[in-house]
Amino acid sequence: MRSFRSVILCADDFGLADGVSRGIVELAWKGRLSATGAMTNMPGWRRAAPDLKPLKDRIAVGLHLNFTVGVPLGEMPDLAADGVFPPLQILLAKALKRQLQASEIAAEIARQLDAFTQAFGAPPAFVDGHQHVHILPGIRKALIEALAVRGYAGRTWLRDPADRAASVLRRPVGRSKALVVKALAKGFARQTHLAGFSTNKGFSGFAPLDLSIPVARVFGEAFSHLGPHPVVMCHPGYVDDELRALDPVVDSRIEELNYLRSDAFWELLEQRGLRLSPEIA
Protein backbone atom coordinates (compact mmCIF):
# COMPACT_ATOMS: atom_id res chain seq x y z
CA MET A 1 0.00 0.00 0.00
CA ARG A 2 1.32 3.43 -0.94
CA SER A 3 2.18 5.75 1.96
CA PHE A 4 1.56 9.49 1.91
CA ARG A 5 3.29 12.38 3.64
CA SER A 6 1.24 14.99 5.47
CA VAL A 7 1.56 18.69 4.68
CA ILE A 8 -0.41 21.69 5.86
CA LEU A 9 -1.62 23.99 3.10
CA CYS A 10 -2.52 27.27 4.78
CA ALA A 11 -4.48 30.06 3.10
CA ASP A 12 -3.50 33.39 4.62
CA ASP A 13 -5.64 36.52 4.99
CA PHE A 14 -9.07 35.17 5.94
CA GLY A 15 -11.18 38.22 6.81
CA LEU A 16 -9.14 40.62 4.69
CA ALA A 17 -12.08 41.01 2.29
CA ASP A 18 -15.29 39.08 1.71
CA GLY A 19 -14.06 37.72 -1.63
CA VAL A 20 -10.93 36.31 -0.03
CA SER A 21 -12.89 34.69 2.79
CA ARG A 22 -15.46 33.21 0.40
CA GLY A 23 -12.76 31.66 -1.77
CA ILE A 24 -11.01 30.14 1.24
CA VAL A 25 -14.23 28.63 2.57
CA GLU A 26 -15.01 27.10 -0.83
CA LEU A 27 -11.56 25.52 -1.07
CA ALA A 28 -11.81 24.19 2.48
CA TRP A 29 -15.10 22.42 1.76
CA LYS A 30 -13.53 20.85 -1.35
CA GLY A 31 -10.59 19.55 0.70
CA ARG A 32 -8.12 21.75 -1.16
CA LEU A 33 -6.85 23.52 1.99
CA SER A 34 -6.09 22.31 5.48
CA ALA A 35 -5.63 25.60 7.37
CA THR A 36 -6.37 29.30 7.26
CA GLY A 37 -5.18 32.30 9.27
CA ALA A 38 -7.65 35.03 10.23
CA MET A 39 -7.00 38.79 10.30
CA THR A 40 -9.20 39.62 13.27
CA ASN A 41 -8.67 43.39 13.17
CA MET A 42 -10.38 43.58 9.77
CA PRO A 43 -14.15 44.19 9.51
CA GLY A 44 -14.49 41.13 7.29
CA TRP A 45 -13.46 38.82 10.13
CA ARG A 46 -16.70 39.11 12.10
CA ARG A 47 -18.78 38.87 8.95
CA ALA A 48 -17.07 35.69 7.76
CA ALA A 49 -16.12 33.93 11.01
CA PRO A 50 -19.46 32.01 11.21
CA ASP A 51 -18.62 30.37 7.88
CA LEU A 52 -15.56 28.75 9.47
CA LYS A 53 -17.31 27.14 12.42
CA PRO A 54 -18.70 24.18 10.43
CA LEU A 55 -15.17 23.58 9.13
CA LYS A 56 -13.40 23.38 12.49
CA ASP A 57 -13.00 19.60 12.25
CA ARG A 58 -11.72 19.77 8.66
CA ILE A 59 -9.15 22.57 8.79
CA ALA A 60 -6.99 24.33 11.36
CA VAL A 61 -8.12 27.90 11.98
CA GLY A 62 -5.53 30.26 13.38
CA LEU A 63 -4.77 33.91 14.06
CA HIS A 64 -2.99 35.81 11.27
CA LEU A 65 -1.53 38.49 13.54
CA ASN A 66 -1.59 41.82 11.76
CA PHE A 67 0.31 45.08 12.29
CA THR A 68 0.49 46.39 8.71
CA VAL A 69 -3.02 46.51 7.19
CA GLY A 70 -6.16 48.26 8.35
CA VAL A 71 -6.68 49.77 11.76
CA PRO A 72 -5.77 48.44 15.20
CA LEU A 73 -8.50 47.25 17.53
CA GLY A 74 -7.47 49.84 20.10
CA GLU A 75 -5.45 53.02 20.34
CA MET A 76 -1.79 52.72 19.36
CA PRO A 77 -0.46 56.29 19.52
CA ASP A 78 3.12 55.26 18.78
CA LEU A 79 2.79 52.73 15.94
CA ALA A 80 -0.50 53.96 14.48
CA ALA A 81 -0.66 57.62 15.44
CA ASP A 82 -3.19 58.38 12.69
CA GLY A 83 -5.28 55.34 13.57
CA VAL A 84 -4.00 53.20 10.68
CA PHE A 85 -1.28 50.55 10.72
CA PRO A 86 1.91 51.56 8.89
CA PRO A 87 3.24 49.66 5.85
CA LEU A 88 5.68 46.82 6.47
CA GLN A 89 8.74 48.94 5.69
CA ILE A 90 8.00 51.29 8.59
CA LEU A 91 7.11 48.51 11.02
CA LEU A 92 10.24 46.57 10.08
CA ALA A 93 12.49 49.60 10.58
CA LYS A 94 11.01 50.31 14.01
CA ALA A 95 11.29 46.65 15.01
CA LEU A 96 14.93 46.29 13.96
CA LYS A 97 15.80 49.53 15.76
CA ARG A 98 14.03 48.22 18.89
CA GLN A 99 11.63 51.17 18.78
CA LEU A 100 8.33 49.32 19.21
CA GLN A 101 6.62 50.08 22.50
CA ALA A 102 6.24 46.80 24.35
CA SER A 103 3.03 47.65 26.20
CA GLU A 104 1.34 48.90 23.04
CA ILE A 105 2.27 45.79 21.06
CA ALA A 106 1.19 43.45 23.86
CA ALA A 107 -2.17 45.18 24.19
CA GLU A 108 -2.95 44.85 20.47
CA ILE A 109 -1.91 41.19 20.44
CA ALA A 110 -4.35 40.59 23.31
CA ARG A 111 -7.12 42.41 21.45
CA GLN A 112 -6.60 40.40 18.27
CA LEU A 113 -6.56 37.14 20.25
CA ASP A 114 -9.76 38.17 22.04
CA ALA A 115 -11.40 39.06 18.72
CA PHE A 116 -10.56 35.58 17.47
CA THR A 117 -12.03 33.68 20.42
CA GLN A 118 -15.10 35.91 20.64
CA ALA A 119 -16.07 35.32 17.01
CA PHE A 120 -14.87 31.73 16.58
CA GLY A 121 -15.70 30.41 20.02
CA ALA A 122 -12.36 28.65 20.56
CA PRO A 123 -8.66 29.50 20.81
CA PRO A 124 -6.64 29.62 17.59
CA ALA A 125 -5.14 26.32 16.48
CA PHE A 126 -2.01 28.24 15.51
CA VAL A 127 -0.67 31.77 15.23
CA ASP A 128 1.30 33.30 12.38
CA GLY A 129 1.66 36.82 11.07
CA HIS A 130 0.58 38.86 8.09
CA GLN A 131 3.84 39.51 6.22
CA HIS A 132 5.45 37.36 8.96
CA VAL A 133 5.32 40.19 11.53
CA HIS A 134 5.05 37.69 14.39
CA ILE A 135 8.77 36.90 14.17
CA LEU A 136 9.97 40.50 14.45
CA PRO A 137 11.84 41.87 17.47
CA GLY A 138 9.42 43.49 19.85
CA ILE A 139 6.55 41.31 18.62
CA ARG A 140 7.71 37.68 18.91
CA LYS A 141 8.42 37.87 22.66
CA ALA A 142 5.16 39.64 23.38
CA LEU A 143 3.24 37.07 21.34
CA ILE A 144 4.81 34.07 23.06
CA GLU A 145 4.14 35.63 26.48
CA ALA A 146 0.53 36.42 25.57
CA LEU A 147 -0.12 32.86 24.48
CA ALA A 148 1.61 31.41 27.55
CA VAL A 149 -0.43 33.56 29.94
CA ARG A 150 -3.61 32.25 28.34
CA GLY A 151 -2.51 28.65 28.84
CA TYR A 152 -2.27 27.92 25.12
CA ALA A 153 0.97 25.92 25.34
CA GLY A 154 0.25 22.45 24.04
CA ARG A 155 -2.93 23.68 22.33
CA THR A 156 -1.73 26.35 19.92
CA TRP A 157 1.33 26.06 17.68
CA LEU A 158 3.27 28.87 16.03
CA ARG A 159 4.24 29.07 12.39
CA ASP A 160 7.96 29.24 11.76
CA PRO A 161 8.45 30.86 8.32
CA ALA A 162 12.04 29.64 8.06
CA ASP A 163 13.27 26.52 6.30
CA ARG A 164 16.55 24.71 5.86
CA ALA A 165 18.93 26.69 3.67
CA ALA A 166 19.39 23.70 1.36
CA SER A 167 15.65 23.51 0.72
CA VAL A 168 15.30 27.24 0.16
CA LEU A 169 18.16 27.30 -2.30
CA ARG A 170 16.60 24.48 -4.32
CA ARG A 171 13.40 26.49 -4.87
CA PRO A 172 14.17 29.40 -7.24
CA VAL A 173 10.68 30.90 -7.00
CA GLY A 174 10.63 33.40 -4.13
CA ARG A 175 14.13 32.41 -3.02
CA SER A 176 15.33 35.92 -2.13
CA LYS A 177 12.29 36.67 0.00
CA ALA A 178 12.54 33.29 1.69
CA LEU A 179 16.17 33.93 2.64
CA VAL A 180 15.33 37.35 4.09
CA VAL A 181 12.51 35.92 6.19
CA LYS A 182 14.76 33.04 7.30
CA ALA A 183 17.29 35.57 8.59
CA LEU A 184 14.60 37.56 10.42
CA ALA A 185 13.27 34.35 11.99
CA LYS A 186 16.62 33.38 13.53
CA GLY A 187 16.03 32.01 17.01
CA PHE A 188 12.24 32.06 16.70
CA ALA A 189 11.73 28.29 16.82
CA ARG A 190 14.11 27.91 19.77
CA GLN A 191 12.34 30.62 21.78
CA THR A 192 8.99 29.13 20.93
CA HIS A 193 9.99 25.61 21.97
CA LEU A 194 11.50 26.84 25.24
CA ALA A 195 8.13 28.36 26.10
CA GLY A 196 6.40 25.03 25.49
CA PHE A 197 4.95 25.66 22.05
CA SER A 198 5.36 23.55 18.92
CA THR A 199 6.24 24.82 15.47
CA ASN A 200 6.18 23.42 11.97
CA LYS A 201 9.46 22.19 10.52
CA GLY A 202 9.67 23.28 6.92
CA PHE A 203 8.03 26.25 5.22
CA SER A 204 7.44 27.27 1.62
CA GLY A 205 5.10 29.16 -0.66
CA PHE A 206 6.97 32.42 -1.26
CA ALA A 207 5.99 33.73 -4.66
CA PRO A 208 5.76 36.93 -6.71
CA LEU A 209 2.32 38.54 -6.77
CA ASP A 210 2.52 39.87 -10.33
CA LEU A 211 1.88 36.61 -12.22
CA SER A 212 5.39 36.77 -13.69
CA ILE A 213 5.69 33.04 -12.95
CA PRO A 214 2.94 30.53 -13.82
CA VAL A 215 0.98 29.51 -10.76
CA ALA A 216 1.48 25.81 -11.52
CA ARG A 217 5.24 26.30 -11.23
CA VAL A 218 4.81 28.29 -8.00
CA PHE A 219 2.97 25.41 -6.36
CA GLY A 220 5.17 22.80 -7.95
CA GLU A 221 8.20 24.33 -6.21
CA ALA A 222 6.32 25.05 -2.98
CA PHE A 223 5.50 21.35 -2.63
CA SER A 224 9.10 20.28 -3.21
CA HIS A 225 12.01 19.69 -0.81
CA LEU A 226 9.62 19.70 2.15
CA GLY A 227 10.69 19.54 5.77
CA PRO A 228 9.55 16.83 8.23
CA HIS A 229 6.43 18.75 9.37
CA PRO A 230 5.90 21.31 6.62
CA VAL A 231 3.57 24.22 6.03
CA VAL A 232 2.95 25.65 2.57
CA MET A 233 1.32 29.08 2.50
CA CYS A 234 -0.95 30.40 -0.23
CA HIS A 235 -3.13 33.43 -0.91
CA PRO A 236 -6.25 32.44 -2.86
CA GLY A 237 -9.46 34.44 -3.09
CA TYR A 238 -12.05 36.13 -5.23
CA VAL A 239 -11.32 39.72 -6.22
CA ASP A 240 -13.84 42.36 -5.14
CA ASP A 241 -13.85 46.12 -4.63
CA GLU A 242 -13.07 45.71 -0.93
CA LEU A 243 -9.89 43.81 -1.78
CA ARG A 244 -8.86 46.24 -4.51
CA ALA A 245 -9.09 49.11 -2.01
CA LEU A 246 -6.66 47.32 0.30
CA ASP A 247 -4.27 45.64 -2.12
CA PRO A 248 -3.24 46.96 -5.55
CA VAL A 249 -1.94 43.53 -6.65
CA VAL A 250 -4.87 41.12 -6.67
CA ASP A 251 -4.80 39.03 -9.86
CA SER A 252 -2.63 36.32 -8.35
CA ARG A 253 -5.35 35.51 -5.80
CA ILE A 254 -7.91 34.35 -8.35
CA GLU A 255 -5.20 32.45 -10.23
CA GLU A 256 -4.27 30.58 -7.05
CA LEU A 257 -7.93 29.91 -6.31
CA ASN A 258 -8.49 28.44 -9.76
CA TYR A 259 -5.38 26.28 -9.60
CA LEU A 260 -6.13 24.90 -6.13
CA ARG A 261 -9.59 23.73 -7.17
CA SER A 262 -8.29 22.21 -10.41
CA ASP A 263 -7.54 18.60 -11.26
CA ALA A 264 -3.93 19.65 -11.88
CA PHE A 265 -3.42 20.47 -8.21
CA TRP A 266 -4.89 17.17 -7.06
CA GLU A 267 -2.67 15.35 -9.53
CA LEU A 268 0.37 17.20 -8.16
CA LEU A 269 -0.39 15.95 -4.65
CA GLU A 270 -0.92 12.41 -5.91
CA GLN A 271 2.32 12.43 -7.89
CA ARG A 272 4.29 13.71 -4.90
CA GLY A 273 2.65 11.30 -2.47
CA LEU A 274 1.19 14.09 -0.33
CA ARG A 275 -1.98 14.48 1.72
CA LEU A 276 -3.26 17.74 3.16
CA SER A 277 -3.52 17.70 6.95
CA PRO A 278 -4.58 20.29 9.54
CA GLU A 279 -1.95 19.10 12.03
CA ILE A 280 1.79 19.69 12.12
CA ALA A 281 2.60 16.17 13.30
Rank of each mutant, 00 (worst) to 15 (best):
Q271M: 12
V61I: 15
G15S: 04
V250R: 04
A216P: 01
A245N: 11
D18Q: 12
S198D: 15
I280N: 03
L143W: 07
V180S: 12
R32V: 01
F85Q: 01
V249H: 14
H132Y: 10
L169N: 13
F14M: 08
D12C: 09
C10Y: 02
A122I: 09
M39Y: 03
L73I: 08
D82I: 01
V25F: 04
L257V: 10
A115K: 10
A183H: 11
C234P: 06
R5V: 09
P230K: 03
R164G: 13
R190M: 04
Y152Q: 13
G74P: 03
P86L: 03
A102T: 15
E26M: 02
G37S: 15
L136P: 10
N258K: 14
T192F: 02
V249S: 09
W157T: 11
A107W: 09
R170C: 07
L158D: 05
Q271F: 10
S224M: 00
D12R: 04
K201A: 13
G202D: 03
S176K: 15
M42T: 02
G15H: 09
W266R: 15
L100M: 07
P228Q: 01
P54C: 00
E256I: 06
R164Y: 11
A119L: 05
R32Q: 10
A17I: 02
E75W: 05
R98Y: 11
W29F: 10
D13S: 05
M1W: 11
M1K: 11
R22K: 11
V127P: 10
E104A: 08
S224E: 11
I144D: 04
V7I: 12
V69H: 13
G154F: 10
V71N: 14
A216K: 12
I254W: 06
H225P: 02
S252V: 13
N258S: 15
F120R: 06
E242A: 13
R150D: 06
I135L: 07
R47S: 14
L209Q: 12
I90E: 15
W157E: 08
A195R: 06
